[in-house]
């Protein structure tokens, strides 16, 4: 968890290099993003997978989407909140994703119309 604890505000980074080449920045972004896509796989390949690690990873996989969506629902407008609610209700009833997504988009559009 060091990566977020170390840098309370990105704007307060004191050691900084200013770059004028867009290509250099794009290359740095590419390497950084690839490191995130590969880093978790690499970490797991060096951590022995005990029962505890396995349970942690399994619960974490159930949590990722919720952690993405909860602040979206909290900070979104009523269009966003009711869209998510409509999707949840429709998916629970019809057990299919696409009608739920369609309902969510329709509700967001309707709420924002009025």
């Amino acid at each position: 968890m060091v990566w977020w604890a170390c840098c309370p505000e990105v704007t307060t980074v004191t050691v900084e290099i200013m770059i004028s080449s867009p290509w250099f920045i794009i290359a740095a972004m590419t390497v950084t993003t690839l490191a995130t896509r590969w880093g978790g796989v690499f970490l797991m390949s060096v951590v022995p997978i005990s029962n505890r690690v396995h349970r942690f990873i399994q619960a974490m996989s159930a949590s990722v989407l919720v952690a993405i969506l909860a602040p979206l629902a909290l900070t979104g407008d009523w269009g966003a909140r009711l869209a998510l609610l409509a999707t949840a209700i429709v998916v629970l009833i019809v057990k299919k994703p696409l009608p739920g997504i369609a309902a969510g988009i329709a509700v967001a559009a309707l709420v924002r119309w009025f």
Binding site: W3, G40, V41, F42
Partner: peptide, 15 residues
């Protein structure tokens, strides 16, 4: 890195 750190979780959960 901070925005894309979620990829770390994805790689780990797919391991």
């Amino acid at each position: 890195f901070a925005i894309n750190a979620r990829h770390l979780l994805m790689g780990a959960t797919l391991y």
